[in-house]
Simulated assay, not measured.
Amino acid sequence: MMNLIRMEFYQILHNKYFYAAVLLILVASFLTLPGFENQVGIVGNERMDALRVFTTMLLMSGIWIIGIGIIGAFFAGQDIETPSEKITLAAGHSRSGIFAAKVISFLVLMNVLMLFFPLAGLCIELSRIPFYMGVRSDIIGIYIIRVIILTILINCSVFSFILLLRFTFQKAGITVAITALTLFSQYVLVGITAQKGITLSCLPFVMQQYSVLVNTTLRESVKIAVTAFSYTFVFLCAAYCFFFRREIK
């Protein structure tokens, strides 16, 4: 299993598109920082701080997850036409091991890319403004841990759906197109329903917004975590069924 995971990461780290994506994220984070500072609404005030901008970047990351999702769909579909799965299977590895290695490496990669955007912004902001967000100092650590855990779980629910598309259609173009259409439609739906006073709390975009609020309760956090984990479990189970039944060429 570990050898399979190392092989998947080796292929990723030797993919020029991965580094292009990292560079794109870094540039986008730098260029969009002024906009996120304006969203905070306290530009030029002594209360301005890096962590507040960081959480605002997570709060406003709906459009960004569409872009990262499309990049993820592209990565997921890159090895569809290659014989790597057949070679790995012929080497004596099980289908379950191959599937697990692909899932683990993909989810880790996409979460790194997704968190790299706000973390890069946080590092840039730390070079010139304080870290403190204005909440009690004794709960800042708990707050950061909660936000990171919930963000990872929510990201996994989205990216596991991309894996389901990848193993279902076995075509990179279709995977990218459906991913873009689904995520963008969800973003528009959340915006339309919000204007009508309706909150679709079961959707990943809405869960992401609630996860970064300071006053989110433990019960709400558990609900978000369970919902996100349920999505991930269902999507990965369905993806495994398609992967297990299809012929590896």
Rank of each mutant, 00 (worst) to 15 (best):
E125C: 13
Q78K: 13
I192Y: 13
A101M: 05
Y231N: 05
L23Q: 06
L200M: 12
I80T: 09
R95P: 11
S160F: 00
F117W: 14
M57Q: 12
M2V: 10
N38C: 00
G72S: 13
E46R: 12
I70D: 04
L213I: 11
K16F: 06
A228D: 00
F18A: 03
P204E: 01
L23H: 05
I142C: 00
I140E: 15
V27C: 11
Q186P: 00
G41T: 07
T151G: 02
N45F: 13
D79N: 11
F106E: 03
R246T: 07
T179H: 07
F161R: 01
S105D: 08
P118H: 08
A177W: 07
R219L: 14
F167A: 04
C237G: 09
G72R: 01
V158C: 03
E85T: 10
A76L: 08
G77Q: 06
A50H: 04
A172E: 10
A172K: 10
Q195K: 14
C241L: 11
F159K: 01
A180S: 14
G97K: 10
A21H: 05
F131I: 07
M48R: 15
L23Y: 12
G197M: 07
R47Q: 15
N15L: 01
L59P: 00
Y19E: 07
L236V: 02
I25N: 08
I140V: 15
L165G: 03
N38P: 00
V190H: 08
T56M: 14
S221W: 06
L200P: 04
R166F: 00
T55M: 11
K86F: 11
I65D: 00
F99E: 01
L236S: 06
G121E: 07
C123L: 15
F36L: 13
L200A: 07
W64M: 12
I63D: 11
M133Q: 11
N155G: 09
G97T: 04
A172W: 04
T151N: 01
V234P: 02
L153G: 04
I70V: 15
G44K: 13
S201C: 00
L33S: 07
C123W: 14
N111E: 05
A101N: 07
I198T: 08
V147P: 03
G92W: 12
T199V: 14
S127E: 12
P34I: 06
I144Q: 03
M1E: 06
I145A: 15
V103P: 03
F117V: 10
V135L: 15
V190M: 11
F54P: 05
G141K: 10
A194K: 12
I140M: 13
